[in-house]
């Protein structure tokens, strides 16, 4: 186990290094990406631009610039080019918003996906199963920005059932206000995943139910509930857990950009989108590192959970 963790940590460092480097490289090479031009202002003289370049270190070689940026990211001194505020502080400010969205939505899509998938599998071929299949396909194909805008407009703005966007921290508005603000984002983000998860689980259950050990379980005379729970569902959950861990890591790392934007949550994803639009390299770099951290972290956790769920897999 210790060896596994150490190996994972090394792996994590390598992934983050590679990802950040590639990101930096892209922005370094991108046309119009030269930050000095923008920092110096629209009507700057070449002399002013050069001064800015010197001041910010843009005249240094590529490697030095990359090294400086990485160093500043970890000391918290990284400054945004456009807003000139501290990037790490913005991320720390946005993280609770993103986490609120990710944790809530991930729980919803896991629970609903499994419940609907199981229901569908048990009624395979029946009308209810076919209905759920269609529903799942609709869920999968609906774009978040469209569904989100629709929900926001009709349920939030017109019907007034929910606040139309925004985020209220628990410390300010209390639990209920926070919860009310999160319901729509959670539901919209979860819709896509529920569709996928229920399909995957349904097919898994239908595969597993024909496995020999399920027949053995029935032959033992244990209750059908137990056969389904301890044997069919337990074994069908293994791929779902893997999938869930990876998706959760993605959303946790700010991957639900559209949802954050549509509901104006001002989380990490939102910040990321805004920074990309402005070609603002420091925040982009920092958010990429932030995202990579969570994706790799969850990957490691998934591996541990996977080994716990399936004893045939051993860590090491």
């Amino acid at each position: 186990m210790a060896r596994f963790i150490v190996r994972r940590l090394i792996g994590m460092a390598i992934v983050m290094l590679v990802v950040s480097f590639l990101t930096f490289l892209i922005f370094f090479k991108i046309p119009g990406g030269d930050p000095a031009d923008r920092l110096a202002g629209k009507y700057a003289t070449p002399g002013q631009v050069a001064a800015v370049e010197r001041e910010w270190g843009f005249d240094k070689p590529f490697w030095i610039q990359y090294g400086n940026m990485m160093e500043k990211t970890f000391t918290g001194d990284l400054i945004s080019y456009t807003r000139q505020d501290k990037v790490v502080e913005r991320i720390i400010d946005g993280a609770p918003r993103t986490f609120s969205l990710a944790i809530g939505a991930a729980l919803i899509w896991l629970v609903l996906g499994v419940a609907l998938g199981l229901f569908s599998a048990l009624r395979a071929g029946a009308l209810s199963d076919r209905f759920l299949t269609v529903l799942a396909l609709i869920g999968i194909s609906m774009p978040v920005f469209w569904l989100g805008a629709l929900a926001n407009y009709y349920l939030g703005y017109k019907a007034g059932l929910f606040p139309d966007g925004g985020y209220v921290p628990i410390s300010e508005g209390g639990l209920w206000e926070w919860f009310k603000h999160m319901i729509l984002p959670w539901s919209v983000l979860a819709t896509l995943f529920v569709g996928v998860y229920s399909r995957v689980l349904r097919n898994q259950v239908l595969d597993t139910i024909n496995d020999d050990y399920v027949r053995t379980a029935r032959a033992k005379g244990i209750s059908e509930r137990r056969v389904m729970g301890r044997h069919v569902l337990r074994n069908s959950m293994i791929p779902i857990v893997t999938l869930w861990g990876l998706d959760f890591g993605y959303v946790l790392g700010g991957g639900a950009i559209l949802t954050e934007t549509v509901f104006d949550l001002q989380g990490v994803g939102d910040y990321f989108a805004e920074s990309i639009g402005a070609l603002d390299v420091p925040p982009v770099m920092a958010v990429v590192l932030f995202g990579a951290f969570f994706i790799v972290l969850l990957n490691g956790i998934v591996d541990i959970v996977y080994a716990a769920l399936d004893p045939r897999i051993r860590l090491s």
Binding site: D211, D212, Y213, R215, T216, A217, R218, A219, K220, G221, I222, S223, E224, H231, R234, N235, I238, L309, D310, P311, R312
Partner: peptide, 26 residues
């Protein structure tokens, strides 16, 4: 189904062909 379940494994038991797949791996 319920009557049969009580007999299965108790009064009448079964072993299957493929021992590699007949036990739950987890």
């Amino acid at each position: 189904d319920d009557e049969l379940r009580k007999l299965r494994g108790k009064e009448i038991a079964m072993i299957f062909q493929d021992p590699m797949t007949s036990l739950n791996p987890v």
